[in-house]
Amino acid sequence: MTTINTQSPTPPKPDMHQLIARERRSWYLGTGQLLVLTLIILGAWWFADVLNARRLADGTGDIISLTAEAMPPDFSNWKDWIRPLFDSLAMSVAGTAIAVIGSVPIGLLAARNTSPHPTVYFAMRGVLNFLRSIPELIMGIIFVAAVGFGVLPGVLALGLHSIGMVGKFFAESIEHVDEAPVEAVTSTGASRLQVILHGVIPQVLPQMADVTIYRWEYNFRQSTVMGMVGAGGIGFELIGSLRIMQYQEVSAILLIILVMVTGVDLLSGVLRNKFK
């Protein structure tokens, strides 16, 4: 309890005019911010040529004719696509697993409250930023050059790039952990590692599961394009059909990918709900 006020508590009377003035000022402030944002967006559009009406009009016709050429979708080669589809699926699962295995220790070292030393903390943050800043397609090209064509370079590229993002999220959720139970575990005489295992990890497990499943979904979508750089999967078939201008096949593959992505999306939604 707080100290007892022996004086009569006189709550200061708020000045109504001042309150109204503040309320009005905050409206103008908000509108001003919105205006600035609009100007920034318009500037970006102008810079990127989005506002060039003639170029857009010229392109529209080509898009329509391309779409017409791609109709109807041609599924006659479907048997050749089963294997690459499984490749893509396996690539996403294997890559995500690598990401999680790498992210747990890196995440613990890159979280301020569990990192043993600030130097380690900054070094790990650097590693995470580095991994995140290399696009997975570039990583794919590097790994194709290193280990040859196939699913393996795709798995490595997705896994490594994912560590950058998954590790950062792990670290962030570890930093936001409720300190009270952690302190309680410390008070029992547990060692540093035990405090992490029993005080920190149980609290962040739901977030970890959430990020992992989301990342798996993302990696599946990415795995469909990894084939374009020769890293296996359905993307390999897609780029092949595109090169020989079989647009009807392209549209068929895109439809299949759409169905698969929707399926993975539904499944990940169900799984994430389970880990609440």
Binding site: A180, P181, E183, A184, V185, T188, G189, A190, S191, L193, Q194, L197, H198, G199, P202, Q203, L205, P206
Partner: peptide, 24 residues
């Protein structure tokens, strides 16, 4: 404020009390 890990079962929380002296 009890400072339990609310997501875990009661017995799991009690087991935390026995960590000291155990190997990790």
């Amino acid at each position: 404020m009890h400072q339990l890990i609310l997501r875990q079962s009661a017995v799991k929380n009690v087991l935390v009390g026995m960590l000291a002296g155990q190997l990790a």
